[in-house]
Simulated assay, not measured.
Amino acid sequence: MTTKEQIASRLEQAFSQRGFAEPGVAELKILAGVSLRTLYRYFPSKESMVIGALDYRHGRYLKFLAEDEPPPGRESIVHLFHRLADWMRQKAPHGCLSVNAFAAYPSSLAIRDAVKLHKDELVRLLARRSGREALGWELFLIHEGVSAAWPLVGMRASEAGETAVLKLIDGGIND
C-alpha cells in the first residue's frame, strides 16, 4: 500500500467514526499518522481529504461486495444484499459515508462528483449482478434505502430490502 493509500485509509476511518464536521485538519493529521506537510502533499485541502477517503472506501466496498460472488442472477443479488448488511453492521453503522459527505458538503462540486461516480458504478454493478440490466436503478434505490435506514433500524432495513428485491426480481408484488 502506498503512502497515499495509507493516509486515505486512515482518513476514511476518521470520517467514518467522527463525521465530517468535527475533525479539523490538525486532528486529521494526527489520525492519519503523518506530518501536516505529508498530509498536504497528498491531500492539499480538507475537501481533497474527503474525496481521497471516499475513493478509498469505494474500492474497498466494491471488493467487499465481490467476495464469493455467484454468477449473475437472483442468487447474486441476494448475496449482494447480504454483503450490504454485513458491510453496514461491520463498517458503516452510521450510514453511507458518501451520502454523509455529500450532506456535509452540499456545495462542493468535487465531492458531489465523487459521490455520483460511486453511485453510478453501483447502478451498473447491480444491473450486471442481477443479469437484468433494466433493473439497475430499481435495485439501486432499494440498496440506498437499506443504507439510509440502517442507522435507525439496523437489520430490519436489510430484511425489508431483501424482501423488496426478491419481489422485484421474481415479479411477486401481491405478497
Rank of each mutant, 00 (worst) to 15 (best):
M1Y: 10
K4Q: 14
S9N: 13
S9E: 15
L11A: 08
F15G: 00
S16N: 06
Q17R: 15
G19K: 06
F20C: 05
P23Y: 03
A26F: 02
L28P: 00
L28Q: 08
L28H: 05
I30T: 14
A32M: 09
A32K: 00
G33L: 09
V34G: 08
V34R: 00
T38G: 04
L39S: 11
R41D: 07
P44Y: 09
S45Q: 03
S45N: 09
E47I: 07
S48D: 11
I51N: 00
A53P: 04
A53D: 02
D55V: 08
D55R: 07
H58Y: 11
R60H: 01
Y61E: 12
Y61P: 03
K63V: 07
L65I: 15
L65Y: 08
E69P: 01
E69R: 13
P70D: 01
P70Q: 01
P72S: 12
P72K: 15
G73D: 14
G73N: 13
E75K: 11
S76V: 02
I77T: 12
V78I: 11
V78L: 02
H79G: 04
H79V: 00
L80E: 02
L80T: 06
F81E: 01
F81C: 00
H82R: 07
H82D: 13
R83K: 15
D86Y: 11
D86A: 15
K91D: 08
A92C: 01
P93Y: 05
H94G: 04
C96Q: 03
L97S: 00
L97N: 04
L97V: 01
S98H: 15
V99P: 00
V99A: 07
V99S: 03
A101G: 06
A101Y: 05
A103E: 05
P106G: 13
P106W: 10
I111V: 15
D113Q: 15
K116Y: 13
L117E: 11
E121A: 06
L125W: 05
L125K: 06
L126F: 09
L126N: 09
R128I: 08
S130K: 07
L139C: 12
L139G: 07
F140C: 14
F140M: 15
E144K: 09
E144T: 13
A149H: 00
A149S: 02
M155V: 02
M155Y: 00
G161L: 00
T163G: 06
A164L: 04
G172Y: 11
G172C: 12
